[in-house]
Design a protein around this nucleic acid. Structure first.
Lengths: 187, 187
DNA sequence: CTCTAATTTGAATCAACGCTCAAAGAAAGT
DNA sequence: ACTTTCTTTGAGCGTTGATTCAAATTAGAG
């Protein structure tokens, strides 16, 4: 393989960027810090990425994509499964999930591109949750399901947001408690 | 009055800082931008604040204090009133409420002082919501009220978080929908 | 082994940041 | 009017940020 070393370096840089953005935020992350953690000098960074912004955008895309597993809806169809999948994402990929939450606030105002991407992603997520709700409770009107789904998704984001502040926060426990409340409300 | 001009300038600087932090975040806000918007030069800034950090901390304190009106619990005792008060804060003070949400993510990792302050504030808020719940439904166990209160507060923060991304988002409508769901779950 | 393409280096550039300070400029008190 | 106190000015300091590039180094292909 011809470009092996370069691609490995690229991965190392992306990993550093990921953890630094998770800890210090989009603007708090510097090229120097990324390079130090990756064991590389700034020159190498600019051989692999055209700019800091592009590198960050790559990590951001990773994060957004990682929120929704199985984009083709394979096997994840009930509300429980959707919530569990999100909880698993939060617990198994803490760095990426922190990045995801940070985009929502840091991206807004600074990058219209990011804001648009996040809003579209949110809409898709709500639609998926709403569909799961209607599959379980067909008597729900479309509007009602949409409303409840959005409330649930926003609440889950609130839980994820709090974990950025308190790393020891038990997201799984709270997410499931939230789901119980939602179930109680429907019945 | 002897220090009139200085205090007015101080207010103008704080107002600029407030709106800039709301739009661009803690680290995205520069002294130069603050001074430009306030119609003042950097020298004046440093006559009134010892550092950028102190000025920002002042705005942050404002924001945290503004979240909870009536700290002495006067007149705001039911869950509806607590939620309404928060909605009113979000709607009537959009800049401060954006600052509040931003602190949660930007402060974490960069400033332990801010993180601690936010966590303590959150705890107090949850306790207040839990007390209101138990006053309305005395059959609720303390643990259960606490859990439901925390879920509700986090969900409200999720709603506020989303409005940072989407300025047109109707926080009032969603907050009340959330409250209805919570009521349905209890009954 | 050799040659060439891929990769890393690290010093240097330029802009922007937070911050300082001596001097000039209002206002208030007498 | 005069003097003292408060207020603003704006050039300028040191530091750090992102970014560039010619030269040195490494490693795969023939």
């Amino acid at each position: 393989m011809r470009y092996k070393a370069g691609l490995e370096t690229r991965d190392r840089i992306l990993a550093s960027a990921r953890s630094l953005i998770a800890e210090r935020g989009l603007e708090g992350t510097t090229i120097k810090a990324i390079c130090e953690q990756a064991g590389v000098l700034p020159g190498s960074f600019y051989n692999l990425f055209p700019s800091k912004e592009q590198a960050i955008l790559t990590v951001v895309r990773e994060a957004i994509d990682a929120v929704d597993p199985d984009p083709a809806h394979q096997g994840i169809d009930t509300l429980d499964e959707l919530v569990d999948a999100y909880v698993r994402f939060l617990e198994e990929q803490p760095a990426l999930s922190r990045v995801y939450i940070r985009i929502g606030v840091s991206g807004a105002g600074s990058s219209p591109e990011l804001t648009g991407r996040m809003l579209r992603h949110h809409q898709g997520r709500v639609a998926r949750f709403a569909a799961a709700m209607r599959r379980h409770s067909p008597e729900l009107s479309e509007a009602m399901a949409e409303r409840r789904a959005e409330t649930l998704v926003l609440a889950l984001n609130g839980i994820a947001l709090h974990r950025v502040l308190d790393p020891g926060f038990d997201v799984g426990w709270h997410a499931r408690a939230l789901l119980d409340d939602a179930a109680a409300a429907v019945s």
